[in-house]
Amino acid sequence: MSARTEGAGPAGLASALVASGALRDDWIAAFEAVPRHLFVPDRIWPGIPDGTRQNPLVDRAADPQAWLTAVYSDIPLTTQWDDGRHTGDAVGTRPSSSSSQPSMVFAMLADLDVADGQRVLEIGTGTGWNAALLSHRVGAEHVVSVEYDPVVAEAAASRLRPTPTLAVGDGRQGYAPCAPYDRVIATCSVGEIPLAWIEQTAPGGVIVAPWGPEYGGEAVVRLVVGEDGTAGGHFTRSSAFMRLRQQRPDLPPHDTYLGGRDWPADGVRSRTSLSPAEVGGWLEQFVIGLRVPGAFWTVERYDDGAYTLWTYSSTDRQSWASVDYEPGADEFKTVQAGPRRLWDETEAAYGWWVRSGRPGFERFGLTVGLEGWTTWLDPARN
């Protein structure tokens, strides 16, 4: 059953992607030759554009038109939950595989700036659609795709014709047998760029990957590999991808910090004029994550619209802060405990961002090397 006979197809999506600038002339032929519906399983949970929430199951057998509409909408589609352990029709706990939002797919491919015949390494095969697009563009013999989940990899392999080199394994290790690569692209987010990706990329080559700090926020970074074995470049756009499985954070539970004691335990009370609502945006989280390393947060919500923002240190596993948000308030109660004063650090990070002119993702950059990674604001672009 083709998209055309079901009464819908890729034409509308292509028009929208071209109009938005995501789908450029050099990728239109691949888009037309590799229709998305051939790479989407029958059971999907459609998402929303920012990728942070999933809608109820759409089953192709039960409602083929709804399925097709979802496939040719500019939204991500969750295709697996909880590393394959989830069963049933409800949403699972953690999405673990998906078909990425088409506008993001083609925006990242534009960032990759691939040329005919270049060798490309993809981390995260997923449904196989991105690997198929790359194979059409540069030739399947020049594409290597690595997938950690063997079930996901097997399903993708059944859809890919012609078939690129497919490997099942830890994406952090890249795929050395076919190195060096001219381009590396990750379809999962990372908090650390694996050195193997840099080592397996030829000098002057490009690595495109969603990157985000532990605290939150995320953006796509475009790194150029140098002769000295480092890689650096600017972020290009906001993103919201599933984390590379081996880099998922193992965060201590709330009780670790209060040690079984009732709040405020041994915390120091104060007040702040900075509303917790001001630091909750995706960009704000990203900036705080850069300036307040080794921290994460949760929210405890109440029926009246009030909530408590909890911040914790993952490095010392002792420090914590709470800030109580009340609608309409001008000041907010805070409590801080432990070696770090996490709300003070958060306020300082937010203040720095405001004084810097509230820069967007594209003004930040990342440099990665043997000694670790650093982020920066506004140096000359690579």
Rank of each mutant, 00 (worst) to 15 (best):
K333R: 14
T346I: 15
G128H: 02
W320S: 04
W81A: 03
V40G: 04
A231N: 02
V190D: 00
G360P: 04
I123M: 10
W343K: 02
S314A: 15
S98P: 09
V354R: 14
E6S: 13
L370D: 13
L38P: 00
E147Y: 11
G88W: 10
V184L: 13
R119W: 02
L309F: 13
G124F: 01
T334I: 13
T5H: 06
G233R: 00
A348Q: 08
T78D: 00
G280Y: 01
A219V: 00
Q285Y: 02
P150R: 12
V168E: 09
A131I: 05
A16Q: 14
A11G: 12
A240C: 12
T272D: 06
P41Y: 09
F286K: 01
G281M: 05
S97G: 10
G232E: 12
A3S: 12
Q80C: 07
P253G: 13
S135R: 05
D59P: 04
L274F: 08
L57E: 10
F235Y: 14
L77Y: 06
A115H: 14
F106M: 11
P162V: 03
P150Q: 13
D250K: 12
A337K: 00
L112K: 01
G217F: 01
D83G: 05
L283V: 10
G124A: 05
V91A: 14
P293W: 09
P252G: 10
L309C: 08
A196N: 07
P252W: 10
S96Q: 07
P56L: 11
D344C: 02
F296S: 06
S20D: 15
D113A: 15
Y302M: 10
S273P: 00
S273N: 07
V208S: 03
V220K: 00
D262T: 13
Q80N: 08
A202V: 15
H86P: 07
W45P: 03
T125F: 02
Q80Y: 07
P164V: 08
G169V: 12
R237C: 04
E371M: 08
G128S: 08
D25N: 09
